[in-house]
Design a protein around this nucleic acid. Structure first.
Lengths: 336, 336
DNA sequence: AGCAATTACGAAAACGGTTTCGTAAATAAA
DNA sequence: TTTATTTACGAAACCGTTTTCGTAATTGCT
């Protein structure tokens, strides 16, 4: 079965290519009768237009690029669903690109996007990203970009974030109220703004409750699960070990619980735990995990909606603006 | 900043478009000196070729389509990583499309692919998929397709699966050896071949150990979490309730554990649990979850490798063949 | 030196659509 | 009836590449 193009279709119909094209696009220039004939024959011959040919002429790809560190993370997979739900209504496709937390990958991907592969970009930067020239280049090239969750402050565009400062503040205060006074904070990156804001919220809560922050309770985790496990274990073995812990990222849940089990620490009696996490299974952990749950689906949806606003209105441009959606502190047994 | 195309580049260099194109593609027809000049200027002007123009002319998109039910599932997200790892080495992009377990979505996506958006397809069918005309159409249209995990037996092409029958058999046998004699099986679909094979493995194991299968222990779950929870709860409340349970899909983990907790059933004493699951957090559930873990990354990698073999060799064609990789039964406390 | 082969480039066609513009026929307005 | 407008279509340009083919200029061979 040969693939059928618009020329074949026109030939079959004894019409010109342009008429067929207009009929397929429901142009006012074409009579109802002809439109129906064309549509019918197109269906019969199983004609599917080549999107790249359309892109080329129309100078738009009908694709948006979604650049994220990882797909095996419930925040991102839920956000993808949110993004996809709006892209679908707009007739757009979603091109998901993974950086695997590598700056070099991120740069390469954004560079490629400048060739016209996508019409706009949603980005959550990698942990390695400390400078944003590659992002500014993209924008200078005319591609609208909206950050979601992990943003770069130096870039003049909109971002959808959650109240990282406040939720870390809330979580810390919650632990303090639960009588924890040596609270550790597990960070994922020194450069990521969300990580820093969460850290600041944590520090502010300590300060407001007259607890002195201690550098030894602030741990920089890496992208390596085994190494994180060792770091956490070490943290929990030192003298004056923490009796509270706040993990700023979901993937630390497993090493934390594993370390507690291996060290036979009682949760929440000896150690109270809060994680930034969207894991559905938080409820069935034992003890069930207190989480700060981000509105992942909503954030994806909102980011995409904003991006489309920029794509559809040529005179609407994305300015530096922070759309903040609240996360929820869901108290469960691990901090009881 | 205007976007630069090959014509601008040629103008800047005082060369013809064709020469520039050949230089960029490292053609033997172009002198080293010219190549260097072109490369240099291209970098300076930040030239990025339009992939769609190349696609159009070259009649290939350098994209492969990955069609899966859901991305928020650890099997699929890991498989994506496997697929991506090989696509990257081939200079291909991965277009991920989600069916959300809807047959209609699946059909629409595959239909669209026939327009040339992708050069080949990796597919894991939706639970609703009972007939395969849409898949056969795609293949008849010249697009190579490889199944992974969830396949359609009626389609003449290769598939990468795991030993669903054997692993269900092993899991069931394991539960029997742990003294369970009323073992329930939770299915996700009556039509999905993997679901049926797992069911058969379960039934065979019962038979081989002289346990009579009982229809009331075989539950068809849906795509709705709340409903599944109710089904499971009902299962665990009937008289002669099961003392063993095998869940054929990861997303049933939460409702099972939740139901056990709500009904105050002791695991594993009163109920032994095994799940088909790739969840990392299986280890930190309490009790830790015995799983049948599929080689998700490997399967993605293998499926992609096979697809590229078909893409690269015009005379290699995908025949009906089942590449089976073994899953591992990882015994943990929930079946102890 | 004379001819063939090679080297290095350019012109133009092609990929599959969309869009602009031109126009014959039909209809409306004068 | 004559002129203006509308309707319905076709020819051709165009989007940004790659590729085929043609050809001067250089090199190699005898």
């Amino acid at each position: 079965m040969k693939h059928i193009n618009i020329k074949d279709l026109a030939l079959e119909l004894n019409l010109s290519v342009s008429t067929v094209s207009k009929a397929l696009n429901d142009s006012y220039e074409i009579s109802e009768e002809t439109k129906n004939r064309v549509l019918e024959t197109a269906a019969r011959l199983n004609y599917v237009p080549n999107p790249y040919a359309s892109s080329l002429r129309g100078r738009k790809s009908k694709n948006i690029g979604v650049v994220i560190p990882e797909v095996a993370d419930s925040f991102f997979s839920l956000a993808i669903n949110g993004i996809e739900s709006v892209a679908k209504t707009k007739g757009y496709h979603v091109l998901i690109c993974l950086t695997h937390e590598s700056f070099e990958n991120e740069r390469t991907i954004l560079k490629e996007f400048q060739g016209g592969r996508v019409d706009g970009v949603l980005l959550s930067v990698s942990t390695e990203t400390t400078q944003c020239d590659h992002i500014n280049d993209l924008i200078a090239n005319g591609l609208p970009l909206v950050f979601f969750d992990r943003a770069c402050d130096e870039v003049e565009t909109a971002k959808i974030t959650t109240d990282d400062f406040e939720s870390a503040y809330k979580a810390t205060t919650h632990l303090i109220q639960q009588k924890a006074d040596r609270i550790a904070f597990l960070s994922i990156s020194k450069s990521l703004s969300i990580s820093n804001k969460r850290l600041e919220g944590y520090l502010k809560a300590l300060e407001d409750h007259d607890i002195k922050a201690d550098q030894k309770y602030i741990i920089d985790c890496s992208n390596d699960a085994e190494q994180n496990y060792l770091l956490i274990k070490k943290l929990l073995q030192q003298k004056n070990k923490p009796n509270g812990i706040i993990a700023s990222v979901e993937k630390l849940t497993t090493p934390i619980y594993t370390a507690c089990k291996d060290l036979e620490m009682k949760v929440p009696e000896e150690l109270k735990i809060v994680c930034f996490s969207n894991l559905e299974i938080a409820t069935i952990l034992n003890p069930s995990l207190t989480t700060i749950t981000q509105p992942a689906f909503e954030m994806g949806k909102m980011a995409a909606t904003l991006l489309f606003k920029a794509l559809e209105n040529r005179n609407f441009s994305l300015v530096k603006e922070d759309f903040m959606i609240q996360s929820a502190l869901v108290v469960r047994d691990s901090s009881g």
